[in-house]
Design a protein around this nucleic acid. Structure first.
Length: 464
RNA sequence: GGCGCGGUGGCAGAGCGGUCAUGCAGCGGCCUGCAAAGCCGUGGAGAUGGGUUCGACUCCCGUCCGCGCCUCCA
């Protein structure tokens, strides 16, 4: 299978360094606030990478870090007047809750920066010993960018261009404006860990290098994150890791595109972000958001709007409609693997083309409905089982269809009341009192409930 | 200023040098008491100006427009 490598700008065959075992690292979140749907997109994209690799038979070791010490966290905690650990614990819990709801599987390791101080200190020491870092005049430890020949390769930047960019703030303590902090000495009252350079805390970039190396080794297969991390974060990671270990760092870099709002990047600094929990509160099911993201390719931008989520709800509903009342095998393992599976695999093998993969799911739904229409229930069930299995690889179709249709915005008409009205309508229909029957149906429609009369006289319903 | 990405039918969004993406919406038919759902069928595209080619939405060049990174950011 082929993956687009940001380092080379092209798709490359995946050849795990250790045959059959893919080691991947994804940059997680800084926990000082609720996660927004931009974070969700990235985590879902790499969750699908992980799920798909496992389905393809690879053993996967997935590491996703948590940044639990950083300037913004310190500031937020001070503003809230609470200990840092209390603040970060609260947002870590919230993050887990949000990601679990979205069906994002937990990584194999979820290291926190504060748990890896010894590894971080050791890596910084090694960089100083190797001549790649220095103690600046203000006491901070800096990475000397000019000491690393490959600097700029990932982001396609040249040192001269970066300096000419003049957007880098001039810091007297640095020998070169592009040098970045590895170890930050702490001011009084700030959290601090002991180090050979005095009490302080790690710079942002070094934690990922240290944790990735500790858990996956110096040289591993996949490293992912949002486009915005390409420079400087990932560029710096490469410089740190390669210089400290003397080995190659990452084989393949993957970067996901942004979520846009009004064709602008959604970000905390712009303030145009929507938290996961706010968005989910307005959806029938978190899978709708997941389907929305998977409907476009992970590397491109995606425009967020409530209307688009509505389309995703309808499209996913079509898949659940196909599955409704279908006699499916107890386990997906028994699912047949037909032409759809073949196509699914072909498009996913090509840099995780989830829009095409979703299209094959829609094709299977048509197969199910089509077979059902001609009375071939065996064929319908077979296609349905295949649909559910492939859906699971994308983290979709995990609900009971009936539950999916009944889910809706809280506070609406109760299931019991709906059943009551349907019963009353059934009586009217039996008496061929169509006017009365239609009145009930209209009443339910007003309440957001759509009825469907089945051939046998049964009536099923769903929330709009 | 440097580096990079993109402009596809009413909406969203893929692949592909010459046959279908897919979903929603539209239209016709079937089904239904009527609907809904579903099935069958169907119209509708490729920012522009050139070039390459027997043939380009797909390759190359220019132009216009939009966006991102270069600063914390998924």
């Amino acid at each position: 299978m082929r993956i687009h490598n940001s380092l080379t700008g092209r798709k490359e065959e995946l050849r795990p360094l250790e045959p059959g075992h893919v080691r991947m690292y994804v940059c997680g979140d800084t926990v000082y606030d609720f996660c927004h749907i931009g974070h969700a997109r990235s985590k879902i994209a790499f969750d699908v990478v992980r799920r798909y690799l496992v389905w393809r038979g690879f053993r996967v070791t997935y590491v996703r870090n948590i940044t639990d010490i950083d300037d913004k966290i310190i500031r937020r905690a001070a503003e809230a007047g609470e200990p840092i650990e209390v603040l970060t614990a609260r947002y870590i819990d919230a993050m887990h809750e949000d990601y679990d709801r979205l069906g994002i599987l937990r990584p194999d390791h979820e290291p926190r920066a504060t748990e890896y101080l010894p590894a971080i200190v050791e890596m910084v020491s090694r960089l100083i010993e190797g001549g790649y870092a220095y103690v600046a005049t203000n006491g901070d430890v800096m990475y000397a960018v000019s000491s690393f020949p490959g600097y700029g390769r990932l982001s396609g930047k040249r040192l001269a261009d970066l300096r000419a960019g003049a957007r880098v703030e001039i810091d007297e303590a640095k020998r070169d404006p592009l040098d970045f902090v590895l170890w930050k000495t702490s001011k009084p009252g700030e959290p601090a860990w002991d180090s050979p350079w005095g009490p302080g805390r790690p710079g942002w970039h070094i934690e990922c290098s240290a944790m990735a190396t500790a858990l996956l080794g110096a040289h591993f297969d996949l490293h992912g994150g949002g486009m915005d991390l390409k420079f400087p974060h990932h560029e710096n990671e490469i410089a740190q890791s390669c210089a400290a270990t003397g080995e190659a760092f990452v084989e393949c870099w993957m970067h996901n595109g942004f979520v846009n709002v009004d064709s602008e990047k959604m970000s905390k600094s712009l303030g145009n972000f929507f938290t996961i929990r706010d968005v989910l509160a307005r959806l029938r099911d978190p899978e709708v958001l997941r389907y929305f993201f998977l409907s476009s390719h992970y590397r491109g931008p995606i425009s967020y709007s409530p209307g688009q989520l509505g389309q995703a709800d309808a499209a996913l509903g079509r898949l659940y409609t196909a599955l409704r009342d279908l006699p499916l095998p107890a386990t997906d393992e028994a699912a047949p693997q037909g032409a759809a599976t073949e196509r699914f695999q072909a498009v996913m093998d090509d840099d995780f083309n989830t829009p095409e993969a979703v299209a094959t799911l829609q094709g299977l739904a048509r197969e199910v409905n089509s077979a059902r229409a001609r009375g071939d229930m065996a064929a319908a069930a077979a296609a349905g089982a295949e649909l559910r299995l492939l859906g699971r690889v994308l983290g979709l179709l995990q609900r009971e269809p009936e539950a999916w249709f009944r889910a809706g915005v809280p506070g609406a008409i109760s299931d019991a009341r709906i059943a009551e009205l349907i019963e009353a309508r059934a009586a009217a229909r039996k008496a061929k009192n169509w006017a009365q029957s239609d009145r009930v149906r209209d009443e339910l429609a007003q309440a957001g409930v759509i009825l469907e009369d089945k051939p046998g006289g049964q009536t099923v319903w769903r929330r709009a």
